[in-house]
């Protein structure tokens, strides 16, 4: 089942990329998390016909791709998860919102087409921004940032535990489904007769594993709390990085930069 292989591959790949020792990777995780959220908020806050303003927002992903020396190609496959639904929702805009704006030859551009386009671009930008966050910040660093903003420790701890065991369980599912498909040639998925037992067995095994993990924790003095070595302190460069981006993003949001350039060169 290539989907499982892909998932494991993707996990390892992201971890490798995020773990690189580059200056963008070393910026305080809270700064990167905050910037990502601010960026996405600004992107989705653009009006549905404000295509030119929105295009200007490409500046952030473009810059980070270059700064972090990331491959744009890798990020593309993440788009296919979110974009279909966005497109389905957007595809109807041209049908319902049909005020013509201008003609290109015999083709009439309508407001609906513009709003569909902005919707798709918003989708692309927000996915890219999340990708960039995870490509320059490891999950542990993000969890550290979440603890800094007082997300309850039980949620953060469990994200860490989940992350620790995801690849192991995906590997287990892969072995089970492979063993299944070897003995059931020609079947695309899991036959309904074994839905319960196949997943149920895996669930029981996971529960046993959890039990053993709990025992192992208790034997080493577990008292309900977790401590992690991840420590970051804010340094001057973090604050500068944050401030510079904040200014750039706000300027691009509130000053019609793209249109201004359009006047200059048009």
């Amino acid at each position: 089942m290539s989907r499982l292989d892909n998932a494991i591959h993707e996990l390892n790949h992201i971890e490798d990329v995020a773990g690189r020792d580059q200056w963008v990777n070393n910026i305080h995780p809270l700064v990167k998390l905050a910037l990502t959220i601010i960026y996405i908020i600004i992107v989705v806050s653009f009006g549905k016909y404000n295509l030119s303003g929105l295009i200007g927002m490409a500046v952030y992903p473009a810059a980070v791709f270059i700064l972090a020396e990331l491959s744009f190609k890798d990020s593309l496959k993440r788009l296919k998860v979110v974009l279909p639904f966005v497109c389905i929702v957007g595809i109807f805009n041209p049908f319902f919102d049909r005020i013509p704006i201008y003609n290109i030859g015999s083709f009439t551009v309508t407001t609906g087409m513009i709003s569909m386009l902005t919707l798709v671009i918003k989708g692309v930008f927000s996915v890219l921004a999340s990708y960039l966050l995870i490509a320059i910040t490891t999950i542990e660093e993000i969890c550290f940032a979440l603890r800094l903003i007082h997300v309850p420790s039980i949620i953060v701890t469990q994200v860490m535990l989940m992350y620790r065991y995801i690849s192991m369980l995906i590997g287990e599912v892969e072995r089970i489904t492979k063993a299944y498909s070897l003995r059931a040639p020609g079947q695309k998925g899991i036959h309904f007769k074994v839905w319960g037992s196949l997943v149920g067995q895996l669930l029981l095994r996971s529960m046993d594993k959890a039990e053993a993990v709990y025992e192992s924790m208790c034997l080493r003095g577990f008292n309900g709390n977790f401590y992690y070595s991840e420590k970051h302190k804010f340094v001057m460069s973090d604050i500068i990085y944050f401030a510079v981006w904040l200014i750039i993003l706000l300027v691009f949001r509130f000053v019609p930069i793209v249109r201004a350039f359009g006047y200059i060169f048009g």
Partner: peptide, 26 residues
Amino acid sequence: GYVFQDYDSQLFMPKVVDDVAFAPVN
């Protein structure tokens, strides 16, 4: 000290250093 047969049950923290530090910290 008890070393489990299955190391995946023994090791539950993300990084080596966190796991080795788990007991002394606790």
